[in-house]
Amino acid sequence: MAPWTAVDIPDQTGRTAVITGANTGLGYETARALVAKGARVVLAVRNLDKGKAAADLIGRRYPGADVTVQELDLTSLESVRAAADQLRAGHDQIDLLINNAGVMMTPKQTTKDGFELQFGTNHLGHFALTGLLLDRLLAAPGSRVVTVSSNGHRFGGIRFDDLQSERSYSRIGAYGQSKLANLLFTYELQSRLAATDTIAVAAHPGASSSELGRYAPGAVQRIAPLLEQSAEMGALPTLRAAADPTVRGGQYYGPSGLLQLRGYPKLVSSNAKSHDVAVQKRLWAVSEALTGVVFPLG
């Protein structure tokens, strides 16, 4: 069977995609590929100047492209709410929400709301954004929420007794927790969406060239170039999760090569921790309490 590539993305004319962190790297390549297939794309970014530059670049490559920029700082729930309000005002329906933005292995920091930076950005910010936009997704036939996780989910656990790493902090452990949370969120969201026409899917890029690794330990940065594939290749699992008509809710896509580090996208598996239903439900309840966002689902 031939590998799945961006050529296999069906026509996206008439569909609206909101992509977080889309001004560079994996998010930019995801946006570019969807625009090439006719999608209306919103680049949801923290830095408006960089977002506008990315939109201009896409527009020059694809004349007539419908690309707009939305300010979104996932480290601030106030910004998440403001962005959601503006997106809701501009769109009656959203076909794709791609939760792509993230930080990795940062020094110990907190978000504007006092959450550990990686957990707050990678999980809580996207949890809140998804909940605030969910009615627009439910209004679009065949809509999808795609959340980008990582192989790093295998290195973490959900530390309910120290979610914000106040007692002890590990860059890798906190990153692993946030990426495991992305999967727990996807699987629990899918269970809650089961009676709807909207699905939740996860993806991961393997080892891909992007700005994400700039805070990684020196040893990781030295070995990374030997393992990495291009951002264009790294975006393919996300694109398949977003656009392949055969995708089903609750699936997880990643590279097909050794250790899922590189290669064309295929259906992959996540670890046992990510499938713990009790932890999925507990994390959901904690996330609602921390963000104040309650999803409009039974």
Score class of each variant (00 low, 15 high):
R248W: 13
M105N: 02
I94L: 06
A181E: 06
E29P: 14
L258V: 08
T20L: 02
F185H: 14
E288P: 11
T16W: 01
Y253N: 12
D73R: 00
S79R: 06
G234M: 07
D73V: 05
L133K: 02
N23G: 09
P245E: 01
N100V: 07
A84C: 03
D66T: 11
S230F: 08
F160Y: 12
R222H: 06
Q280P: 02
R282D: 03
A54N: 05
L283V: 10
S230N: 10
G131M: 02
A83K: 01
Y187S: 05
S191F: 01
N47Y: 06
A2T: 14
D85R: 14
T198Y: 12
G157H: 14
V7M: 07
R154M: 11
G250S: 06
A243K: 09
T238C: 05
L236N: 08
R159D: 13
S287R: 09
L290T: 13
H204P: 13
D244R: 10
V41R: 07
G218H: 00
R61S: 12
Y62F: 15
V277C: 01
L297Q: 02
E166C: 00
K273P: 01
E71C: 08
V286A: 08
A194W: 12
G254T: 13
K281N: 06
L212C: 00
L133I: 07
S270C: 15
T196L: 09
V145F: 13
N23L: 15
S149M: 13
L26H: 11
G59W: 07
D85S: 12
S165Y: 10
S79C: 04
G213M: 09
A22G: 05
A65N: 02
A241M: 07
R240L: 15
V146D: 10
K108Y: 13
S208P: 09
R15L: 15
G14P: 02
T16H: 05
H123G: 02
H275T: 13
Y252M: 11
D66Q: 15
P217S: 07
V145S: 08
E232K: 12
A203R: 10
A272Y: 15
L227H: 05
A231G: 14
T106H: 00
A6Y: 06
A39I: 08
S149Y: 15
V45G: 00
A31I: 11
L138M: 12
L43C: 03
T246W: 01
Y252N: 08
D135P: 03
A219F: 11
V146N: 06
R167S: 14
L236A: 08
L267I: 13
A235N: 12
R46G: 03
I223P: 04
T30C: 12
G38S: 12
R222N: 03
V103S: 00
K37W: 15
G254I: 12
G176V: 15
H91T: 05
T130M: 01
